[in-house]
Amino acid sequence: MADLTNVLKESWSLVEDRSDRVVEHFYARLFLAYPHLREMFPVQMQVQRDRLLAAIVAAVRMCDDPVRLDEHLRSLGRDHRKYDVRPEHYAQVKVCLLDAIRTHAGERWNDVYEQVWSDVYDLMAEKMIAGAAEDDEPPYWDAQVLSHERRGADIAVFTCRPRQPFTFRAGQYVSLECAYKPRMWRTYSIANSPQPDGTLEFHVRAAEAGWVSSALVRRLRAGDTVRLAAPMGSMTLDTASRRDVVLVTGGTGLAPAKALLGELVKYNRTRWVHLFRGERRSDGFYDQENLDRIAERYPWLSIVRAVSDEPGFRGEQGKIHDVLSRHGPWRDHDFYVSGAAPMVRATLSRLAEMSIPSTRIRYDAFTDS
């Protein structure tokens, strides 16, 4: 497996600096050869192109971890049921994807690379098809919006309830579609643990180029219907661990952390929980009163808030990974990190510098794509 992974990475390096052209070539070839597949994709394709590229890069990197890759692919296959993807589509995609990579790799492409990509793709398709076949849940759930609150100029918190039973774990995320942007699915973390009434809470920030997030913040109303795909993600509590917990969040990365807190309040009596929340300015601390009430009720929870761009703020100052470093020690803790991708990367790097084992770190990086 190691040799195969090395060849895969080596061959991908031939096109990595022009990967955007590879993706454009792929979709042009796919829609020309199989025009009936075009209706499965959104009208605006830019985010879809970014998602394909991210999926390719992630798969290449995860080849070093077969167990994680297997779990990821099966979950991805289940998720693709919402697009009505069928087994025969995988062969069609393979022809176009290999053609795109081969074309842009140029003269250095060889038969070994061709065979490795063919074999790896077949393996990935097999896992995804199996994941879809194993799933007896609906391909998606219709959910009615129960409430919608603006928590600032660009943030909204809304609740909804699926019309059919929906099973998930605290810390997971779902793909979501709304009628205002049909066929455009985006991922959002569920901000609560499973509730008896089936209610789900979501926190959404309207990004500048975020068509779906902007619609969810500015147009969604109580009474509307959204669609939810199967839950995904592994930023869930390690139920076998007795270590204390550190939650590191930024922006709407608060959502999965809040879900984990909701799970912990049901049974925790022995684990200290430290929530580090970073924002640029103090007006970004939406939902502050709710979190403070939880901390008042449960002494095992402590909250540290920090801002990076407000000199007059009376609390902690600096990037949240730097603030985290000033506390501790953290040698015997479990870490959960969620927020914008740059913040997550910086925090993971700092934890590596602290020699925190990767097996004790779970994370989600948020983008609108």
Rank of each mutant, 00 (worst) to 15 (best):
W330T: 04
Y267G: 14
E88N: 12
T103R: 13
V344H: 06
V112A: 11
N6V: 08
W272L: 15
P357N: 11
D287N: 10
Q172N: 10
L264T: 00
E107R: 14
R243N: 11
R243D: 09
L69Q: 02
I356D: 01
M40I: 03
E137G: 14
V7Y: 06
P357Y: 09
Q48M: 08
F313E: 05
F335N: 03
F158W: 12
C96Y: 02
V304R: 09
A206K: 08
T167N: 08
Y83G: 06
W117E: 02
F313C: 00
T252M: 04
T249H: 06
L123I: 13
L247S: 03
G171F: 01
A133W: 00
S147K: 08
L324G: 05
A306V: 09
D244W: 05
R51Y: 00
L324H: 03
L254M: 02
A132R: 07
L73C: 10
L301Q: 03
R314N: 08
P165Y: 06
A59S: 12
V323H: 00
P329Y: 07
E353Q: 14
V93E: 06
R108M: 12
G210M: 04
A143F: 02
R350A: 12
W117L: 03
H25G: 05
S349D: 15
L351E: 02
V246L: 07
T187W: 06
S75V: 07
R151E: 15
P138G: 06
V248M: 02
Y173M: 05
P231I: 03
W185L: 07
M45R: 05
K258H: 14
W272N: 15
M235F: 04
M62Y: 11
R281L: 12
L237W: 02
R49S: 04
D287G: 00
D364K: 01
E24T: 09
R108F: 08
R18N: 14
F158K: 01
I361L: 04
V226H: 02
V7T: 15
R293I: 03
W109M: 06
V93P: 00
P139E: 08
T225I: 14
R161K: 15
G250L: 03
A54P: 00
R331K: 12
T347D: 02
W141G: 04
S147D: 14
A215F: 07
A156T: 01
